[in-house]
Amino acid sequence: MEYSGEGSAQGVFSCELCGLSTPFSYYGQKPPNTSSIVLLEECYVMKDPFSPEKEKFLVIGSHCSLCRKRVCVGTECSLFYTKRFCLQCIKMHLEEFPQEVQQELTKRKSVQKND
């Protein structure tokens, strides 16, 4: 499968948390044209629109490993720590995560408040 043709969109990905929506061209763990890279989760992938090279891909989102919600990879919606977690699930299970992740989340929250 290739991204190149304009009509290769598989469908439209839309994040169930922030509403970000954009067409994707591949779902899975092995983005096309890239033999040396394997994704560690099943991802929604598009050709990287900001790169002139057509084999460069961009991971847009995947499913939360707990609630199976479709979420984008944006830091306000999900986080990857060996698996994908949506922010709602992380909040519920915050204690399961190592200190570094927890700190990062509280820091981010305070930054958001200051915005």
Binding site: S35, S36, I37, V38, L39, C43, F80, Y81, R84
Partner: peptide, 10 residues
């Protein structure tokens, strides 16, 4: 490393 959702096979 656990925060990265991909790996490189060589």
């Amino acid at each position: 490393r656990y925060r990265i959702n991909l790996s490189v096979r060589t």
